[in-house]
Design a protein around this nucleic acid. Structure first.
Lengths: 153, 153
DNA sequence: CGTGACCCTCCAGTCGCGTTGAAGGTGTTC
DNA sequence: GAACACCTTCAACGCGACTGGAGGGTCACG
């Protein structure tokens, strides 16, 4: 056994639920600081890293990007209490989420209206393209909702 | 002048608002059929392609992916009236959008609650990490909303 | 001494939907 | 006949957050 105090990457992975490749990835993009290495080159982490990774997961769950989280962690490590910054970010995210909800609701309304219309009047089964879409849009006013997800399986 | 009946790609682009590289890209992924070529190799399109591209834009605005649109266009070109298929897809998208709205609303609620809590109790400015996130999540129950967008600038 | 689990680095690929660029041919106009 | 706009191809890049593989070293157990 080499100089082995501290946790190897697999142990940290088990404690946090973050897979080893992802931990290495976080280090590569500067989110995590490069850890101490054992005499054989293995990454040796402390409990503090476990805390940081749990923090990362929670912050992700609150909608923060890795870039934003990285900034918060940098502030933290510089000794600052980044809570004010976090609050600002959180407010921004709340606003963004609410914007997105409004967009999606408007989109849902238009889609539902169009769908009802299509089902009311049977498709004319004419030439070429599907009429129900080809004839919609200009007067139904479907905009650009960029729905973002695509997993209706 | 070469054998030039039909529209060159730039004309189609102007009529539809779809840039030439995107039209070529659509052809490359099989969404558009390869068009006839002029004697000098230029793509020559007919009005039917203009219709198809407008159809594509509208279908995108309804939340359809290019893959789905491609399937609809394939059905169309095979002589089928794909309206039933389109209705099925549209229903699925409506359901997906509604799911997403529910997720986002739940997420917004949790974020707003957490934010209110954080602003109520001043940050303890303790060691290392920002407490307001580090201490949240387990009892606030923030899930995995995968908010998808990141443009609160 | 062998086997299997773990670790390392580096590199490429994924997803969706394009955008951008280089290098070179064509078509129209002054 | 030169300038300029347009067309062609192929290839790479961009986003965000990973995920996987190749090829090789290390460790613990029996």
């Amino acid at each position: 056994m080499a100089t082995m105090n501290g946790l190897f990457i697999g142990a940290v992975a088990k404690m946090t639920g973050v897979p080893p490749p992802t931990i290495r990835y976080y280090e590569a993009i500067g989110l995590l600081a490069p850890p101490r290495r054992s005499s054989s080159g293995y990454r040796c982490y402390s409990e503090a890293t476990v805390d940081e990774l749990r923090f990362v997961r929670k912050a992700q769950a609150f909608g923060f990007s890795l870039e934003e989280i990285a900034e918060v962690l940098r502030l933290s490590r510089a000794g600052q209490a980044p809570c004010a910054h976090v609050l600002t970010l959180a407010h921004r995210h709340l606003a963004a989420v609410e914007d997105r909800i409004r967009l999606l609701q408007a989109f849902r309304g238009r889609l539902a209206v169009a769908l009802a219309k299509w089902e009311d009047s049977p498709p004319p089964s004419g030439s070429g393209l599907c009429r129900i879409i080809a004839e919609a849009g200009s007067d139904d006013g479907v905009g650009e909702p960029e729905p973002g997800s695509q997993e209706p399986g």
